[in-house]
């Protein structure tokens, strides 16, 4: 915990990713950005870019197509990072549970730090979850975080040059 760690809570940047939900949660996130709730008050920005984001805000049940995408996004984020799973689908699939095309929640793919319940959660719940996430985030260090089966995943997700 150095000098700079104190400033973490003042500027959490968010990467929002919908893994195949119904967009209800996303609408709530948008309304959090809008004048009524204005989460930029807390220095939060929706960056849309894993390279510069601190909090990965995932909605939806994680369809099979999204699985690798979600992993890549998680790997591209620089530590310290926090994953927030938002909405019922993200908790084990919700209404989509055990469908042929879903992975039953975010937790099966990447480690989750904060759960925000609800279908869809209210904006107040979202902000509450974010505050929770920031607290967890402040405890984390710059150390590299490993996924389950990290080396293999890196190998399968790698990028090749064209010749």
């Amino acid at each position: 915990m150095g000098f700079f760690s104190k400033f973490r809570k003042k500027s959490p940047w968010i990467l929002h990713y919908n893994t195949g939900g119904c967009n209800g949660c996303d609408i709530e996130i948008l309304s959090a950005l809008a004048p009524r709730y204005d989460i930029e008050r807390f220095g939060m920005l929706n960056r849309g870019n894993p390279k510069q984001a601190d909090i990965l805000l995932v909605t939806g049940p994680v369809t099979k197509n999204c699985k690798d995408v979600l992993r890549r996004l998680y790997l591209e984020m620089a530590e310290p990072k926090v994953v927030v799973a938002m909405g019922a689908c993200a908790h084990g699939g919700g209404i989509f549970r055990d469908f042929y095309h879903v992975e039953n929640g975010v937790n099966n793919i990447i480690p989750v730090d904060v759960w925000i319940p609800g279908c869809a959660p209210r904006v107040e719940a979202l902000i509450d979850g974010m505050v929770e996430a920031i607290e967890i985030w402040q405890q984390k260090s710059k150390e590299k975080e490993y996924l389950r089966d990290h080396e293999n995943i890196i190998k399968t997700l790698g990028v090749e040059d064209d010749d």
């Binding site: 700079f4 204005d38 008050r41 220095g43």
Partner: peptide
């Protein structure tokens, strides 16, 4: 909107220093 505090760019700056 209310907007971030005046020193927000510097908070961002310090936070980015702390990333891996």
């Amino acid at each position: 909107r209310v907007g971030p505090p005046l020193l927000q760019p510097f908070y961002d700056f310090f936070k980015l220093m702390d990333k891996r």
